[in-house]
């Protein structure tokens, strides 16, 4: 190869790098990294406010998975102490929330300050006084993804306990909030993948390999990681040619049909 040609190639590579850098800068300037998840988080917050009013609680919060070992963290809270609450991590199996998350069963406790154990770290750290509490699991079609908690009543104690009707109402709100939280979590992961892809200056195949490795270790719900892993694998296969593209299309259609069939058969459980 002549020196002239080498120089051209080098110039081309340098130009591509400059272009990539400019792209990265532009994307970061418009803050793509929060454009998916933040509106969803705001929607959860708004719905939580309505739920608290409907259930008749003074405070309320949405807790989501913290890792894959059963820990929980606060996503949003209707509380004067929201800022402090968002810093708290609940270890696996601790507290009423941890219990509701792992047992999958809603629960109301009249007075947590009565004799007996209560994981009161959140109260200690925030200076809050939990008296009466209602917790219900946040479930998607296939997973328990968090806990919806209602704490105390407006005004001063003693508070009337939460009623079974309020418990049922809380479960209905939990169903709606769970869908938003699921979308939020997937949004956060997609943003992270996008962010990482933008920051990676290597070739397409190296980038995909890097993303796959990173996805294995990233702290996100397993089902979401698997979904994105599948997307990356399909992207890689598609890039190999028309036959592969056709195969991926068939594969996706098969998955889609399977999902529909499964949904139909699963819903029949409610009817027999």
């Amino acid at each position: 190869m002549s020196d002239n040609k080498n120089t051209e190639l080098n110039q081309g590579a340098a130009g591509e790098e400059t272009y990539s850098a400019a792209m990265r800068e532009a994307i970061s300037a418009i803050d793509v990294s929060h454009s998916l998840s933040q509106p969803l988080k705001r929607a959860v917050d708004d719905l939580l406010g309505v739920a608290a009013q409907s259930v008749g609680s003074a405070d309320a919060s949405v807790l989501i998975r913290d890792g894959n070992e059963g820990g929980l963290k606060f996503l949003v809270a209707v509380s004067e102490l929201e800022e402090e609450l968002l810093k708290i991590r609940i270890p696996p199996g601790k507290g009423i929330a941890g219990l509701v998350f792992s047992s999958g069963q809603p629960m109301a406790v009249n007075d947590v300050s009565e004799e007996g154990s209560f994981w009161s770290e959140a109260d200690k750290k925030t200076g809050f006084k939990t008296v009466t509490l209602l917790a219900t699991p946040l479930r998607t079609r296939n997973e328990t993804i968090g806990v919806l908690e209602f704490v105390n009543r407006p005004g001063e104690p003693p508070y009337p306990p939460f009623t079974p009707e309020e418990m049922d109402r809380a479960a209905r709100f939990a169903d709606l909030i769970a869908r938003l939280v699921d979308a939020y979590e997937l949004g956060v992961l997609i943003e992270s993948v996008f962010d990482r892809a933008v920051k990676t200056s290597s070739s397409s195949s190296e980038m995909r390999s890097d993303l796959r490795e990173w996805l294995k270790s990233v702290d996100a719900p397993r089902e979401h990681r698997e979904l994105l892993m599948l997307t990356i694998c399909l992207t890689e296969i598609v890039s190999r040619g028309e036959a592969e593209r056709e195969m991926c299309r068939d594969l996706l259609e098969t998955i889609s049909r399977f999902t529909e069939r499964r949904s139909a058969s699963s819903s029949s459980y409610f009817n027999f």
């Binding site: 809603p106 406790v109 007075d111 009565e114 004799e115 007996g116």
Partner: peptide
């Protein structure tokens, strides 16, 4: 309830 006490609880559980 653990610790020797009692609690008033609500749920199918």
């Amino acid at each position: 309830w653990p610790g020797g006490g009692y609690r008033q609880l609500t749920g199918n559980s």
